[in-house]
């Protein structure tokens, strides 16, 4: 099992870098994962990451990208609820990449 080092603590991740124990998540872990992808997290990123965490908390799943886009549009406005905006923030795929930093499993159906 792979681990990443966050503030001197070894955190277990799977072969694709997703957190193994969801309850271990802290914002620092999200930051550290992003840094490994050369991604600096801004408030705009956090808006999406926090949204995903809330969605998971309520429904126990990470939403598919289509569902995420629609839901973000409804909650944060049309200018953010589109794939252009979300892919600019998370070029590796908004659902896939943002879920990783949010400490969630990969969205169901994502390969």
């Amino acid at each position: 099992m792979a681990t990443i080092n966050v503030n001197g603590q070894e955190i277990e991740v799977d072969e694709e870098g997703y957190l193994v124990d969801l309850s271990q998540w802290t914002p620092e872990i999200g930051e550290a994962m992003a840094k490994m992808d050369d991604c600096e997290l801004t408030d705009a990123h956090w808006e999406v990451i926090n949204f995903l965490r809330e969605y998971y908390d309520e429904y126990q799943i990470a939403p598919a990208v289509r569902v995420l886009t629609k839901a973000i549009g409804k909650k944060l406005g049309k200018d953010k609820g589109n794939s252009k905006y979300l892919y600019e923030l998370f070029p590796y795929g908004p659902a896939k990449q943002a879920c990783k930093y949010a400490g969630l499993p990969k969205p169901t159906g994502c390969v």
Binding site: E58, Y59, Q60, I61, P63, A71
Partner: peptide
């Protein structure tokens, strides 16, 4: 076991 019943509420989103 994981309680997956909250996920049924997400079906409308899908």
């Amino acid at each position: 076991m994981k309680n997956f019943s909250p996920t049924y509420s997400a079906l409308g989103d899908y």
